[in-house]
């Protein structure tokens, strides 16, 4: 059954207000397909009925479920390859030199989703930078969705998920097979702190970061929201730190405080020297 225009408008407004994500008219199919699963799980005969209930009874938790279903994005281990190559070849060697005295690194994944990005980072550090064993390395992973964060914390992935982007050598080295799923080993999981954070709301205090990744999330926001987020990123990033955006994202025409780092299609930026 097709989603009614009124139901779509309600979902669109709700998602926009809670997450800042803008759903264009042509995304009606996406709303319908994602919310069909929620409707089924919650015992509604249709998405329209689910949204009607969410509208008339705003406090029963359905609104949160609707927003979470619409804001979960696809991800994979070592997604896009190049950002991780930039980290391995350029960013981490540079930072390790610069932080040789303080022996501390802070990395923030701002759209961690189901955890593949922060875990890929943790694996990269373990695999290529044994020198960091004696350092204090903080990897903070945040996401809008509590449900998704719970999944991320468990570090358990299906076969389809570990097939994507992860080499078999790393799979054997850093995972355990648990029934039909694959779970990251405890010593990788404990490298990461997971916390809820909504990019469009006020951010809690966070330690200044050496590396910030907010990849494949700005594309969902309107121009003003993108500017606001980049402004906050600029204040949080240490002066010699690095920012990573997704392949389809840029700071151009949004914030002139960044310079692009030339490294393939890594989407890597540094603060412009004033």
């Amino acid at each position: 059954m097709a989603l009614s225009q009124a139901a779509f408008e309600f979902a669109r407004t709700l998602v926009r207000q809670r997450s800042g994500i803008v759903l264009e008219n042509e995304k009606a199919y996406l709303v319908e397909s994602r919310l069909t699963v929620v409707a089924r799980n919650e015992g509604f005969a249709s998405v329209d009925l689910l949204l009607e209930q969410a509208r008339t009874q705003p406090l029963n938790g359905l609104q949160v479920k609707v927003v979470e279903a619409m804001t979960t994005n696809e991800t994979s281990f070592f997604r896009d390859v190049q950002p991780f190559e930039a980290l391995r070849q350029l960013v981490l060697p540079d930072l390790i030199k610069r932080r040789a005295q303080e022996k501390q690194l802070t990395i923030w994944c701002g759209a961690a989703s189901t955890g593949q990005e922060p875990y890929s980072l943790a694996i990269l550090l373990r695999e290529h930078f044994p020198i960091l064993a004696g350092w204090k390395v903080n990897i903070l992973a945040t996401d809008l969705s509590l449900e998704i964060l719970e999944r991320a914390k468990r570090g358990r992935y299906s076969q389809v998920e570990v097939n994507r982007g992860l080499s078999a050598r790393l799979l054997v080295k850093f995972f355990d097979k648990q029934g039909l799923e694959w779970q990251l080993k405890e010593d990788i999981r404990r490298l990461i702190t997971f916390r809820q954070l909504n990019l469009i709301e006020a951010w809690p205090w966070m330690a200044p970061a050496d590396v910030i990744l907010v990849r494949n999330v700005l594309i969902y926001f309107d121009v003003e929201t993108k500017k606001a987020i980049l402004g906050k990123v600029k204040r949080l990033l240490r002066p010699d730190g690095f920012l990573f955006l997704g392949g389809a994202e840029t700071t151009m025409n949004l914030d002139d405080g960044f310079d692009r780092v030339e490294f393939e299609r890594a989407g890597c930026y540094r603060l412009r020297k004033s």
Binding site: N163, S167, A168, L171, V172, D176, K177
Partner: peptide
């Protein structure tokens, strides 16, 4: 074949990479 031991065995035999069906 999707068991950890088998992935390891294939790598040991000299496979460069391993992909589990379905894909």
């Amino acid at each position: 074949e999707t068991e950890m031991a088998q992935v390891a065995k294939a790598l040991e035999a000299g496979a460069t990479e391993y992909l589990m069906k379905p894909f």
